[in-house]
Computed example of a mutant assay.
Amino acid sequence: MPVASSSRRKANTRRMNSSDIEEDTFTQPQADDDVESDHDRPRQSKRPKKEVKNETKAARKQRAVPTKADANDEEEDSNEDERIDVDDFPDQPLRKDQMTMLNNIAKDWLKMEQTIGQHWGALRDVGSAIAETADGDEENDNLDELEQVARDIIDIGAEMKSHARVLEGLQQKILQGDEVTKAGDVYISGVKESKKEYAKKTTRQKYAKDENYKDFKSAIYEVQHPATAMPPITDFIPKEDGDDSDDDDDLEVGGVTQNYNCPITLTLLVNPLTSSICGHSFSGDAIKHSFPRPGMAIKCPASGCNKSFKLSDCKPDANLEKKVKAFKRRADRAAEDSDAEEVIE
């Protein structure tokens, strides 16, 4: 029993020590008569404190892990730091390695001008169609509106070309070793100056020498005045102050009556081919049979032409083919009207 008693005392000692350690936790001291109920009272340990410590560490780690919002804030701060202050950013002169960029931009302007120019054929066809059906003031008003569209296309094309010219001028300065600073201001100023110079031109100077415009006017005139040669384009544009100094006015000659007959067959052109050497056109089959052998050059069959060309120089002419068909349609209509008048008489 002494052994048991000794063990009991040790156990009590351990419990007392535990109680001593935890007495700060309790608000009331324990009475002596409560010792016997020590077994019933839940033992207090350091685990809650450890859990508090663990929770504190977990919270600390949670705060250490950046959230998505924190990352966005950091990214915004980084962007704020890296953002360039354009107003205070020093101007940088153009470098030679930037010439390719300037050249490509200039080409883009010219490509846009060429793209717009591709619509001249449609504009010419619409003008011819309106002229064929014109029978009053309304149709004439439509032709006037179409005329303005044609001039607007030339004006827009001139502005696009001015952009390309200014960029090409910047390239030339760089090639010459000139320092080009404030390139943006120089570019904008150059385009504005070019537009001012264009605006000073007279109507004749803007449009009379444009080949697409001449072709447009010729297509309409041909419908309105069949079998009549079109006069010089300047006859359609009143003279203005400044035209007196235009030396090319003296060189303007009247047009010629459009002949849609093949110089070889002397009949209307069929599937026409046009020589890129002299500009004369022929029925496709007729000119093909004029060459003794492939690759051989022959003298142009058109009367008065001394040029020579190969079959490879003759290209299909879709625009001319449309004109021939329109001419044939008008001729057939005129013949029908003439027959109808004879029957009435």
Rank of each mutant, 00 (worst) to 15 (best):
S6A: 13
R8Y: 10
A11V: 14
A11M: 15
R15S: 07
S19Y: 11
S19M: 15
I21K: 15
E22P: 00
E23R: 15
T25W: 08
T25G: 11
V35E: 06
R43G: 15
R47F: 08
R47L: 09
K61F: 00
A64N: 00
P66V: 00
T67P: 01
T67G: 00
S78P: 02
R83K: 14
L102N: 01
N104F: 12
K111S: 08
A150E: 03
A150H: 11
I153K: 11
K173Y: 03
L175D: 10
Q176P: 00
G177H: 06
I188T: 09
S189E: 15
S194Y: 09
Y207M: 04
Y207C: 06
K209M: 14
K214Q: 14
K214T: 02
V223L: 01
H225L: 07
I237Y: 10
D248Y: 13
D250R: 11
E252Y: 12
T265H: 14
P272H: 02
L273P: 05
S283F: 04
A286R: 01
I287P: 02
A302C: 02
G304C: 03
N306W: 07
C314V: 04
P316Y: 05
D317H: 15
K322F: 04
K323S: 12
V324W: 05
K328H: 10
R330G: 03
A335C: 03
S338C: 11
